[in-house]
């Protein structure tokens, strides 16, 4: 695995929402990296990712190599954790906030 990796976290996209999730110390998926489980053995997490994908809970399971400060080593992982660089609505698909501006959608038969 990655050079200089001190430990690994397991990440994926949630199948339904597509949000980035991390295998947590609670033995389930969490959207918070703070709750991620770290293991020094990549082999300990890899099969878990495969199993969770096969159980249709997540997609794109992959290890995140981190340094001793639990900071991701790969640029892609760092950027992904930081989130988008632009200001976006933080509420999650807020449907009511725009009720005044967005007319109801015509639902096709």
């Amino acid at each position: 695995m990655a050079r200089n990796a001190h430990a690994y976290a397991l990440s994926a996209n949630d199948l339904l929402s597509g949000a980035q999730v991390f295998w947590s110390t609670n033995g389930g998926w969490s959207t918070s990296f703070d709750q991620a489980l770290f293991s020094q053995q990549s082999q300990a997490l890899e099969p878990l990712g495969t199993a969770e994908e096969a159980a249709n809970r997540v997609v794109g399971a992959a290890l995140i190599p981190v340094d001793a400060n639990r900071r991701p080593i790969a640029l892609r992982d760092q950027r992904r954790l930081q989130g988008v660089s632009v200001a976006v609505r933080t509420t999650d698909n807020e449907r009511s906030a725009n009720a005044n501006t967005a007319p109801a959608l015509a639902r096709a038969a």
Binding site: L15, G18, V88
Partner: peptide, 23 residues
């Protein structure tokens, strides 16, 4: 507004994409 975070992105192939879609 309803399904994304209030914006869309017009692409170089004359399409539009929504970046915050849920399956």
């Amino acid at each position: 507004d309803r399904y994304d975070k209030g914006y869309g992105h017009f692409t170089t192939r004359q399409n539009i994409q929504y970046n915050w879609t849920k399956l």
